[in-house]
């Protein structure tokens, strides 16, 4: 079936089986490889994208549901020239190690900051439940707080 949506601000139409997980449409049809496959079971969060501003695990999201929606991936997280505040904070705190899970974490964090501009440690514990095997959580927490600062200073 034909499915139309906006991805990172650009209209797209793809021809795919409507039940194909959105993840594979993003990665293999649109060749945006920043959204990762970790488990395919919505358990690790490596495939997190935004659908109409909400954090969604794209491995468990049938492509047909994307019809007419606005999708943002890590490649489109930054608008304008610079990096998104979350990416800036991730740079400042030197968060990534292997880096594979990081786009999912950054997308989840960006969604959190839209809803909770000044997250507490408890908010972070409750909302950010992705998995990082390098265990960069300690710096992520700092980076999330820092991202909130940057974002709030910008607005």
């Amino acid at each position: 079936m034909k499915i139309s949506f906006n991805i990172n601000g650009t209209p797209q139409e793809v021809d795919a089986d409507g039940n194909t997980p959105l993840l594979w449409v993003i990665r293999d049809v649109l060749d945006l490889k920043g959204t990762k496959f970790g488990c395919g079971k919505a358990a690790c969060g490596a495939c997190t994208v935004h659908v109409n501003g909400e954090a969604v695990r794209s491995c468990s999201y049938a492509a047909k549901f994307a019809e007419g929606k606005n999708i943002t991936t890590i490649e489109g997280l930054a608008t304008g020239d610079g990096l998104h505040p979350v990416q800036q904070a991730w740079m400042e705190e030197i968060v990534p190690q292997c880096g594979y899970c990081q786009p999912g974490f950054m997308m989840a964090t960006a969604a959190l900051l839209e809803k909770v501009p000044n997250p507490t440690d408890q908010d972070i514990d409750d909302n950010i439940v992705n998995i990082c095997r390098c265990a960069t959580y300690y710096r992520m927490r700092k980076a999330i707080h820092r991202a909130a600062e940057i974002k709030n200073a910008n607005t």
């Binding site: 919505a42 969604v56 969604a111 950010i128």
Partner: peptide
Amino acid sequence: PALRCETCHQ
């Protein structure tokens, strides 16, 4: 807020 049911359940 950032861990909605709809994050995983459609």
